[in-house]
């Protein structure tokens, strides 16, 4: 089994909160990803068994949503919002400066697997642009120096 007993019991608890078992599939994928960083084929097969659906149905869900991953990921995810309100306030320039700073082309990750840098489509922070999301945290009203410092502080 690749899904740990602890995660399995959290999945069971989530299942108990929905009228139909499958309602807990998104919460379960969030849990598995928190453990493994992505949803591997083995995880998908086990999730399919738990939810009594086919593995392809799990993968359909995984690949539909931007926040789920079907391959191993960098340690940190950094997304600069480049939607219109952020673009109007210089987010594209910020993104290209961060690309040079890290030596990557977005979307892409540093060779040591420390940081994935990408862009995102509106994070609901339009009044505090430019901004970026680092893993689960928002950093707003950024300038290039502040953003670089935040990236430099991210551990391996």
């Amino acid at each position: 089994m690749v899904i740990s007993d602890e995660t399995r019991s959290q999945i069971d608890e989530a299942i108990s909160k929905y009228p139909k078992k499958r309602g807990a599939l998104l919460p379960a994928i969030h849990l598995v990803q928190a453990d493994h960083g992505h949803v591997s084929k083995e995880c998908a097969v086990e999730l399919a068994e738990i939810f009594e659906i086919r593995p392809i149905e799990v993968m359909e869900v995984v690949t539909f949503y931007n926040m789920f991953f079907d391959s191993p990921q960098a340690k940190h995810h950094v997304y600069v919002c480049t939607n219109l309100p952020c673009s109007l306030r210089g987010s594209r320039g910020l993104l290209s400066q961060l690309e040079s700073h890290l030596g990557v082309t977005a979307p892409g990750e540093t060779p040591d697997g420390r940081i994935f840098l990408g862009h995102e489509e509106c994070l609901g922070a339009c009044g505090y642009a430019p901004m970026m999301r680092v893993d689960d945290e928002y950093h707003e009203d950024l300038d290039v120096e502040k953003a670089k410092q935040i990236l430099d502080s991210l551990g391996k």
């Binding site: 499958r22 309602g23 599939l25 994928i29 969030h30 939810f51 931007n66 926040m67 789920f68 509106c122």
Partner: peptide, 18 residues
Amino acid sequence: AGAYICGEETGLLESLEG
């Protein structure tokens, strides 16, 4: 989990159902 379309009410219902 990151999909604009889930703000549409029946897209949301599908997502809620896993």
